[in-house]
């Protein structure tokens, strides 16, 4: 895969699935995200924005985790697909 397809999670739209490539976060937050399943190679589906636009809920290994854009903008991955049209925006 070429680097040009790599986007931060913040750019994913509801319904889209992104395969994580790398995280640019460090320290505790990086470890926490890894523990929750935001590991390179795993697939993350963008589910839903909160009513005020941020945070955003993601599905990762069968669980739903909400992240603020400060964190999700530092998780990068490749867009690998989109579920049938179910955007809510």
């Amino acid at each position: 895969m070429s680097q040009s397809h790599i986007i931060p999670l913040t750019e994913g739209l509801p319904g889209q699935t992104i395969r994580i490539h790398h995280l640019t976060l460090e320290g505790t937050m990086r470890r926490r995200l890894l523990d929750l399943g935001f590991v390179p190679g795993s697939d993350v589906t963008v589910l839903q924005r909160s009513p005020l636009g941020d945070p955003v809920a993601f599905r990762v290994i069968h669980t739903t985790i909400a992240l603020r854009k400060e964190e999700s903008s530092q998780i990068y991955g490749e867009l690998i697909g989109s579920e049938k049209n179910e955007t809510t925006t």
Partner: peptide, 9 residues
């Protein structure tokens, strides 16, 4: 039981 993979860690 509904999130075994995450819990397995």
């Amino acid at each position: 039981a509904t999130a075994m993979e995450r819990n397995m860690n």
